Amino acid sequence: MVRSGFQRAVVTGGAGFLGSHLCEQLVSRGTEVLCLDNFVTGSSRNVRECATDSRFRLVECDVTRPLPVTGDVDLVVHLASPASPKDYQRLPIETMLVGGQGCMQALELATEKEARFLLASTSEVYGDPLEHPQRESYWGNVNPIGPRSVYDEAKRYAEALTCAYRRERGTRAGIARIFNSYGPRMQPDDGRMVPTFVCQALRGKPLTVAGSGRQTRSVCYASDTVRGLLALADSGCEGPLNIGNPQEYSVLYLAETIRDLAGGTAPIEFVAGAADDPRRRCPDITAAEEQLGWQPEIGMHEGLLHTLHWFAELLGVDTASDRVRLPSSRA
C-alpha cells in the first residue's frame, strides 16, 4: 500500500464515477476521507466498499452551501458536478452553481484549513479546439451560449476562481484538466460515448454513432485518471495539467472495437451529431509527464474489457456465453 501524505481529505462529488475511485484510493493509502455528495448523479452504491472502513464517512449535502466540515483537513478535492451532456443539459442551473458557488465553498474550506486544494476541471474548457493536440497554454474555442456552455463555462469559471484564491488568499491550489475517462461505475444511461456503446453492444442493439464518426477522442481508464489526480495532489504543482491518454481514436473505431470485444455483430447506426461537438480531442501530456512523472498505464483494449465485464454484471448479461468472453473486472 502506498502511504499518503494526507491525514484527512474532503472530496466533493465523492460518490460519483471518478470521485468514488478517488475516495477508495485515498482510503487505501491511509487517509481519512469525508465524502460529500447530494446524489443527483452519484450513488451511495459507488462507495459501498469504502463504507465498511472506519476511515471513510459519507455525508449527503449541497456543496453550494457552507460545507459541514469540522476538524483538521489537509486536502480538499472539488469533483462535484454533472459531467455527462445528458446530465448537465438536464441540470443546467445546478451545473453552473456547483461549478461556481460549489467551487468557492470548497476553496473557502481549503483556505480556512490551510489545506491543499485540487480542482477537477475538464478538457471541455478547450471547446471545439483549433489547436491539436491540446496543450495547457491553449485558451480554447468555446461557444459561451451553446447547449454545452453550462458545463464548459462553469469549469472555466472554476479555474479562474481557483487562480484568484491562489493569488489573493495564498491557497495551495492545483488544477487538473481531465480528458475523457471511462470504467466501472459509470451510469449506463448517462449518454456518454463509452457506456452508451458498451450497453448497446452487450444488449445486442445497434451502436449509435453521432455524426460521421470521424471525430476523435482519447479515452483514459479510471485508475489512470485517479493516479494522475493523486500525483497532482501530492505535488506542489499549480497546473493546469492535462490528465488523459494521448492515444487518439475516431468515435467510429471505438464503437466498432467495443462491439467486437463484446463478441457482438450489431450494426452501426449513424445519428445526428450534437451541437458544438468537438471534432478532435486529444491531450498533450508532456507537462504531466515532466512535472508529475505520470502517464497512463492501462491500454485501451484492456480498459474496455474490464469495463465491459463490469457492465455485463450490472446488466445481468451471462459473461460465460459465447457472445461475451471477458476477463475478471478491475475496478
Results as ranks from 00 to 15, higher is better:
residue 1 M to T: 14
residue 3 R to T: 14
residue 4 S to L: 04
residue 4 S to W: 00
residue 7 Q to F: 06
residue 10 V to L: 09
residue 12 T to A: 06
residue 14 G to M: 07
residue 19 G to A: 10
residue 21 H to A: 14
residue 22 L to V: 09
residue 23 C to Q: 08
residue 27 V to M: 12
residue 29 R to P: 03
residue 30 G to S: 14
residue 31 T to F: 05
residue 34 L to P: 03
residue 36 L to E: 05
residue 36 L to F: 08
residue 37 D to W: 02
residue 37 D to C: 08
residue 37 D to G: 07
residue 40 V to P: 03
residue 42 G to P: 00
residue 49 E to I: 01
residue 51 A to C: 13
residue 53 D to I: 04
residue 60 E to S: 12
residue 62 D to M: 03
residue 63 V to P: 00
residue 63 V to Y: 02
residue 64 T to I: 03
residue 67 L to P: 03
residue 68 P to A: 12
residue 69 V to W: 00
residue 70 T to E: 14
residue 73 V to E: 01
residue 74 D to A: 04
residue 76 V to G: 00
residue 77 V to L: 07
residue 79 L to Q: 14
residue 80 A to F: 05
residue 83 A to R: 07
residue 85 P to E: 11
residue 86 K to M: 11
residue 88 Y to Q: 07
residue 91 L to H: 15
residue 92 P to W: 04
residue 94 E to C: 03
residue 98 V to F: 10
residue 101 Q to W: 10
residue 105 Q to Y: 04
residue 109 L to K: 02
residue 110 A to L: 05
residue 113 K to N: 11
residue 114 E to N: 14
residue 116 R to A: 00
residue 116 R to W: 05
residue 119 L to E: 04
residue 121 S to F: 01
residue 123 S to M: 10
residue 124 E to M: 13
residue 125 V to G: 04
residue 126 Y to R: 08
residue 130 L to H: 13
residue 131 E to V: 12
residue 133 P to E: 13
residue 133 P to I: 03
residue 134 Q to S: 14
residue 134 Q to K: 10
residue 135 R to P: 05
residue 136 E to L: 05
residue 140 G to S: 13
residue 140 G to E: 14
residue 141 N to S: 13
residue 144 P to C: 04
residue 144 P to S: 09
residue 149 S to C: 04
residue 150 V to I: 08
residue 153 E to I: 06
residue 153 E to D: 11
residue 153 E to A: 06
residue 153 E to G: 00
residue 153 E to V: 09
residue 154 A to Y: 01
residue 155 K to I: 02
residue 156 R to F: 01
residue 160 A to F: 07
residue 160 A to D: 10
residue 163 C to D: 15
residue 164 A to W: 04
residue 165 Y to T: 03
residue 169 R to Y: 11
residue 169 R to C: 13
residue 177 R to H: 09
residue 180 N to G: 08
residue 180 N to T: 15
residue 184 P to D: 07
residue 185 R to N: 02
residue 186 M to K: 02
residue 187 Q to D: 10
residue 196 T to Q: 08
residue 200 Q to C: 07
residue 201 A to W: 04
residue 203 R to K: 11
residue 205 K to H: 14
residue 206 P to W: 07
residue 211 G to H: 08
residue 212 S to A: 08
residue 214 R to L: 13
residue 217 R to L: 13
residue 217 R to Y: 11
residue 218 S to C: 15
residue 218 S to P: 10
residue 220 C to Q: 11
residue 222 A to P: 02
residue 226 V to S: 09
residue 228 G to F: 01
residue 228 G to Y: 04
residue 232 L to Y: 09
residue 232 L to V: 10
residue 234 D to V: 06
residue 241 L to C: 06
residue 242 N to P: 07
residue 244 G to R: 02
residue 244 G to L: 03
residue 246 P to I: 05
residue 254 L to C: 12
residue 257 T to S: 12
residue 259 R to H: 15
residue 262 A to K: 00
residue 265 T to Q: 15
residue 265 T to Y: 09
residue 266 A to L: 07
residue 272 A to T: 15
residue 273 G to Y: 00
residue 274 A to M: 15
residue 275 A to P: 12
residue 278 P to C: 12
residue 279 R to Y: 12
residue 279 R to N: 12
residue 292 L to N: 07
residue 293 G to I: 06
residue 293 G to V: 02
residue 294 W to G: 00
residue 295 Q to C: 11
residue 295 Q to D: 13
residue 296 P to R: 02
residue 300 M to W: 09
residue 302 E to V: 08
residue 308 L to F: 08
residue 309 H to Q: 15
residue 311 F to S: 06
residue 312 A to R: 00
residue 313 E to M: 15
residue 319 T to P: 07
residue 323 R to Q: 15
residue 328 S to P: 10
residue 330 R to V: 13
